[in-house]
């Protein structure tokens, strides 16, 4: 089952707007919003939630005052500065607690328990573009990498059960834990880059990450006319590294107008729509050709 992940490094490059358009153009696939921290795809796809699940992950330490002897061993051992004096008591700062459980192990009076954390919700839904899985991490919660894995797993199961032939994922910005989880098992990364100093810089970092994990990359230069010199430099880099450029799209407010109307750009009359269609076709060709051969040379 081919999996495409749309990434950008830098936020605001048009990643989610383009993913929505690809979801519209895809015939028999499932959409997966892996930007679990700040998901936006549902705003354009307006999914109907069919099943809702709690996301339970990791643990958090709690100190039972009645058993605590204030020996302070937990405070000394905690590497995350999550345990501190609060009046006459020792307390855990849940925002700092890493859930490593060292305090629980070293407490001589068994006063520290580890409780599982309910970190968010995730959903199996249907949308006008087909089935969708998405989530919302509770604000300020962690373990987004694991939630990404849960969503991908569900997407694979749903895809298999319904004989779908593509998994399309919207990833999160940056290059940290949720992005690394998003790339796990992906066949193609679509990198949406804008030709600005920031966009180019962050694109390089996410491209390095794809190389690090040996995931083939396909590039869309969005707002390509904003800086022609940087756009050309990005194209050169793609040639050097062997990334295919799937499309070059001009700066066009229609993307924002479509977002405000809660539509994919390909659902509007914008001339940009046809260019996105071409880019999507290129991506599908690259998926076919570029994805590593997964069979034995027998």
């Amino acid at each position: 089952m081919p999996e495409i992940v749309v990434l950008s490094g830098k936020g605001g490059t048009g990643k989610t707007s383009l993913t929505a358009a690809f979801a519209h153009l895809m015939h028999n696939g499932i959409v997966c919003d892996l930007d679990v921290d700040a998901p936006d795809l549902h705003i354009l796809l307006a999914p109907q939630v069919q099943q809702e699940h709690a996301f339970i992950s990791g643990v958090e330490a709690r100190i039972a005052r009645e058993h605590c002897t204030y020996c302070g061993r937990c405070e000394v051992m905690c590497r995350f500065e999550a345990i501190h004096q609060q009046g006459n008591n020792l307390a855990v700062n849940p925002l700092r607690c890493e859930g490593c459980g060292v305090c629980h192990v070293v407490c001589p009076s068994n006063a520290i328990s580890l409780t599982q954390k309910h970190c968010g919700q995730w959903y199996e839904s249907s949308s006008r573009f087909g089935p969708m899985v998405h989530a919302q991490l509770f604000p300020g919660e962690e373990n987004s990498g694991r939630l990404v894995s849960v969503l991908k797993q569900q997407a694979r199961e749903t895809a298999k059960k319904n004989a779908l032939d593509l998994i399309l994922c919207d990833g999160s910005p940056g290059i940290g834990c949720p992005v690394i989880s998003s790339l796990s098992g992906a066949h193609l990364a679509v990198l949406v880059v804008e030709p600005t100093p920031s966009g180019q810089h962050d694109f390089l970092r996410v491209a390095d990450l794809c190389d690090h994990f040996h995931i083939p990359a396909s590039i869309i230069i969005n707002k390509a006319d904003l800086n022609l010199a940087i756009a050309a430099a990005i194209e050169n880099l793609c040639t050097e590294r062997g990334y295919a450029v799937a499309g070059k799209l001009p700066f066009n407010m229609d993307i924002t107008t479509a977002m405000i109307a809660k539509q994919a750009i390909t659902e509007t009359a914008s001339p940009l729509g046809a260019m996105v269609v071409d880019a999507w076709e290129n991506i599908l060709i690259q998926l076919k050709n570029g994805a590593r051969k997964r069979t034995l040379p027998l």
């Binding site: 936020g11 921290d37 700040a38 925002l95 300020g140 919660e141 962690e142 987004s144 910005p173 940056g174």
Partner: peptide, 14 residues
């Protein structure tokens, strides 16, 4: 600060 609302953003905000 980092974007988003999970650990990186929270670490800086606090």
């Amino acid at each position: 600060a980092p974007p988003g609302v999970s650990c990186p953003a929270m670490t800086v905000a606090q």
